[in-house]
Amino acid sequence: MGLLANYKKSEVVIEKEKFDSKFDYADFSKEDKEHLIELEKKAIYTGNLLKDNLKELGDVFLEAQKIFSNNKNGMFGKWYENLGFKKDFVYLCLDRKQLSIQYDSTTIYKLPDRVIKDLKKN
């Protein structure tokens, strides 16, 4: 069962008048164009879910990191690795969360990973 198994067309609330694709589908048949636009809507829907989940993961990792640091046992890394997460991903989530707090902005979640890493260096 895939990520979009529970996706239903009715869940994506994008009215045709409001949905403005920036891609030029002029070279496609009407059927292919409609199908590609539906896939574009799914991509946007799933992308928004991903952004929401990244925010939530940042909250989870930050809270867990605080608990582990209070116990000073150095087990935070073992904990998230046991959950199947890689160090780079976890710390990128933490960096996004901390930057969103620092700048009081959710725009941080729209920025590419490279920009987050560069911001964190500064």
Results as ranks from 00 to 15, higher is better:
D104C: 09
E56M: 04
E38D: 12
K22S: 15
K18H: 11
K72W: 11
Y103A: 09
E17Q: 13
I14Q: 12
W79Y: 06
K33H: 03
N73A: 08
K86C: 09
N48Y: 07
K117D: 13
N73S: 14
D118Q: 13
L54G: 00
L39P: 02
F68C: 07
E34Q: 09
K9L: 04
Q102S: 11
D52T: 01
V90Q: 02
L39W: 04
E81D: 06
L49Y: 05
K97Y: 10
D113Y: 06
G47K: 00
N71H: 14
R114F: 13
E31G: 00
R96N: 03
Y91L: 07
K9R: 01
L36I: 05
S105D: 14
Q102A: 13
D24N: 07
Y91N: 09
E56D: 07
K9E: 13
A64H: 06
E11S: 08
D59M: 12
Q65N: 13
P112H: 06
Y45I: 00
Y45K: 01
E38H: 03
K51W: 01
Y45M: 07
D52Q: 07
E31F: 01
S69W: 08
S29F: 00
S10N: 05
E17L: 14
L111R: 06
L94I: 14
T107M: 14
D27Q: 08
L99Y: 04
K42I: 10
I116K: 02
D95A: 15
F23Y: 14
D20L: 15
N82S: 14
D95L: 07
S100C: 07
K121D: 14
L36T: 01
L50T: 00
N82F: 08
L62R: 08
E56T: 02
G47L: 03
L99E: 06
K33F: 04
S100I: 05
F89M: 08
K51T: 00
E56G: 02
L92W: 02
K9Y: 00
Y103R: 08
